[in-house]
């Protein structure tokens, strides 16, 4: 199950973070997302190692820990989309398609003329849409 999705701006500032744990522990997810930026930084700054994935937006698994996985996605504008899941056997393809949908939702949200670029995304409809994508991810997994 996806426990958290986040959008992080190109200056590594949080733009959106939604926790799906249900508990009041979003702060630890803030921490996880924040720390995963280290990995993204490293991948972005060391193009040597990821030469094959230079033009790839999907960064793949950032963080293999015992209990959760962090996946990353980097848009052209250096906005990072991050997802934390407790599913330990997730297919890459599923994650890719999840990020594609998430990216589309993000693009729609920031295309809103009332959204100030670089500021936090406060749109409710974006939040709802992300919720739907997250739910459908869990659903497709269970199928």
């Amino acid at each position: 199950m996806i426990v958290c999705v986040a959008v992080v701006g190109h200056q590594n500032n949080p733009l959106y973070l939604e926790s799906f744990t249900g508990g009041d522990d979003a702060l630890k997810l803030h921490h996880i997302v924040h720390c995963s930026l280290d990995v993204i930084d490293e991948r972005v700054n060391n193009p040597k190692r990821s030469a094959s994935t230079l033009n790839e937006t999907f960064l793949g698994l950032l963080y293999p820990t015992e209990n959760y996985k962090v996946y990353g996605y980097l848009t052209n504008t250096k906005v990072k989309l991050i997802m934390v899941t407790t599913d330990l056997d997730v297919k890459d393809a599923d994650v890719r398609s999840f990020f594609r949908k998430f990216h589309a939702a993000y693009v729609d949200a920031v295309s809103n003329p009332f959204h100030v670029p670089g500021k936090k995304i406060t749109s409710n409809s974006f939040s709802e849409r992300v919720g739907t994508i997250v739910k459908s991810f869990g659903h497709s997994m269970s199928l």
Binding site: N12, N13, P14, H30, H31, H34
Partner: peptide, 9 residues
């Protein structure tokens, strides 16, 4: 945290 705007943390 403040440099990157993570206010919650």
């Amino acid at each position: 945290y403040s440099g990157e705007g993570w206010h919650e943390l």
